[in-house]
Design a protein around this nucleic acid. Structure first.
Lengths: 174, 174
DNA sequence: TCATAATTTCTGTAATTTCTGAAATGTTGT
DNA sequence: ACAACATTTCAGAAATTACAGAAATTATGA
């Protein structure tokens, strides 16, 4: 596909953003392209459009499917899989939160709980406040975890609605 | 400094987490060590404790100072700078949000606004919904930006208070 | 069953990032 | 001004990551 300049700009920027957040540049670009596409795309068209090797697209799509961000669809008269992502940014947000929570927050909570238990058991001379610091971090992560859990449960529409309530929510805490 | 096993575990895990979020592993480890330390540490002690080159510590500390996460302090009778970070996780959170907003969200908003303007000006045949998709993304980013801005303004204590209101906040959107 | 198409896995190369140790620069006290 | 200490810069080495193309595998239809 020959992309309009605007689409190219968005896809390139999306790739850069992904890279800053620990997502492979090509993977982020594939996702950006699918987000803009009105219909599911076959892997070879993605490869051609983004000018990356077909094999890379295969790996990238697997990765995105692993995140639950992309799914394969089939059409009559074409043996190739066609890939699509959700057109709803709030849905994408929800999925990303869910996965990062599962992959990063949950293991961190496990480690922190172990650390807190150990730190309480044995006081250290070099680091007298070790337990306090770890407990504070644990509390933070548990709250983040709870927010992630709730965001995951909420329907995309309600998530958007909640986001728009920003001002009144922050007034609760002033 | 000879670290207790628990501290090592935390620092190593923190380094891994950082790496997943686009922060250099050593930089994240330096920050973790400073977070656990009851007093500011000189660069050579950081290097020795984490077993990384002194020059590397220098670069890492500069990076952390650039984020506003670490500052140098001086003590009488010691020419060396001693480095410290905030012991308040909510303060750290606030600083990180502020910087990521400045470095990533704000430039993204700029690009997206340009993209939306271009997309409205010229309809594309291949991507008929380009403008809608870009506008939806822009709305999302603007809301994220507004939340970041408010979080940045709030005092750490109030941020914590707000985080603890999680349940009642999410009820607003059900 | 066989030929063809589609996809994935694998392997080596290229590019990037991270890190070290040496050299250069800056700072402090005598 | 000089010596001692402290820090930063820099160039190259080491490690990691990303990528392309070939080979292998899997699926489809005749």
């Amino acid at each position: 596909m020959n992309l309009p300049a605007t689409a190219k700009k968005f896809i390139v920027h999306w790739g850069e953003m992904g890279a800053r957040w620990g997502i492979n540049r090509s993977v982020a670009q594939i996702h950006a392209l699918l987000y803009l596409s009105p219909q599911p795309l076959p892997a070879d068209e993605i490869a051609e459009t983004l000018a990356i090797a077909r094999s890379n697209v295969s790996v990238g799509l697997k990765e995105l499917q692993g995140w639950g961000l992309v799914r394969a669809t089939q059409t009559l008269g074409d043996r190739r899989d066609h890939f699509e992502t959700s057109a709803d940014v709030w849905d994408l947000f929800r999925v990303i939160i869910r996965e990062r929570k599962r992959r990063e927050l949950d293991p961190t909570l496990t480690v922190l709980r172990e650390c807190v238990a150990e730190a309480k058991a044995s006081e250290s001379k070099q680091l007298p406040h070790l337990d306090e610091r770890l407990e504070a971090m644990l509390e933070f992560m548990e709250l983040a975890d709870a927010w992630g859990e709730r965001a995951t449960r909420l329907a995309p529409k309600n998530l958007r609605r909640l986001a728009k309530l920003g001002d009144s929510i922050f007034k609760l805490a002033e």
